[in-house]
């Protein structure tokens, strides 16, 4: 039972997670209302902030209880801790299979909506902020692990494109749950959209961001909780299945062509030198 011993040696980490998690759960969901809508604060957000504060890499002065050993061990535990969450989401999809089939066309096609990142972020990055080839890596996708792999494979992570995708990846890791909780809160409280559409959009291929997104939605529209969970879960699963290919065969080629056709003309010479 090496595995058990290994985990018991990490008692500090698990204990800290239990204590901070319990505190976060006790604080509960808080709603901040203002003029145009409301923002929902979820226990998972407090848990993340509190544990980050106790992380020696974030606030060195407070990092006494959790050491580098625990930090290292925590990384693979995120993956395992998200598994029961994914299983739970699966169990919301089965009973709602008819809803899912009914929403099938919307569910499938909204995956293409993920390309909205190119519409919004690419122009800002290239023309607004005058970014170089970093913009390619930064704007072609939401920069989760499969997308990192695409860029690593094609450009390496040390290239400008790699810097772009890594930057968005890290910002997503640090702030993605907050951003999604806020986005979903605002979209839902605006009352302009079908909650089913908002739910489907929550499935972007990241468990924790989906949690924040659906958590906020179900709080705003509690009567549709089951439907929201099922649609978000189904959409997330669909993104797991299609995200890599959409990134590789659609999004990245589009962004590359856009860049080369516009900004890239100027620094084509530079870029080819760097890539070589």
């Amino acid at each position: 039972m090496n595995a058990l011993r290994g985990q018991l040696e990490l008692w500090r980490l698990h204990l800290a997670v239990i204590v901070l998690g319990a505190i976060a759960e006790l604080i509960g969901i808080q709603k901040i209302s203002f003029g145009i809508g409301a923002i929902l604060l979820l226990p998972l957000l407090y848990a993340f902030v509190m544990s980050a504060v106790l992380n020696p890499n974030v606030v060195p002065a407070l990092g006494k209880f959790i050491r580098q050993k625990e930090v290292k061990a925590a990384s693979p535990l995120i993956v395992i801790a998200i598994m029961p969450f994914i299983a739970k989401f699966g169990t919301t999809i089965g009973p709602a299979i008819e809803t899912i089939i009914e929403a099938g066309p919307a569910l499938l096609l909204q995956e293409l909506g993920n390309l909205g990142t190119i519409v919004l972020a690419f122009p800002l990055a290239v023309w607004g902020l005058k970014m170089g080839r970093e913009a390619i890596g930064a704007t072609f996708s939401i920069a989760r692990e499969p997308n990192l792999a695409i860029i690593a494979d094609r450009y390496t992570l040390k290239s400008p494109e790699g810097t772009g995708v890594m930057g968005v990846y890290v910002i997503g890791t640090l702030f993605g749950t907050f951003i999604f909780a806020i986005l979903a809160s605002l979209f839902a409280s605006s009352d302009l959209f079908d909650p089913r559409a908002l739910a489907m959009a929550c499935g972007i291929g990241s468990g924790s961001m989906m949690a924040a997104c659906t958590g906020a939605l179900t709080e705003v529209v509690p009567t549709m909780k089951d439907e929201i969970l099922a649609l978000a879960g189904a959409s997330n699963l669909l993104t797991y299945a299609t995200g890599l290919y959409a990134g590789l065969f659609i999004a990245l080629p589009i962004v590359e062509k856009l860049y080369n056709a516009t900004a890239g003309k100027n620094d084509l010479a530079n870029a080819s030198k760097k890539e070589a």
Partner: peptide
């Protein structure tokens, strides 16, 4: 190291991804 530019771009990446999906789903529904 990434700085504020990349942070701003990241916010739009998230907004664009979410809003894009919402709009397509809404339209089809």
């Amino acid at each position: 190291h990434s700085g504020w530019k990349l942070a701003l771009v990241a916010c739009l990446v998230f907004l664009g991804t979410y809003a894009g999906s919402v709009l397509v789903a809404e339209l089809i529904l």
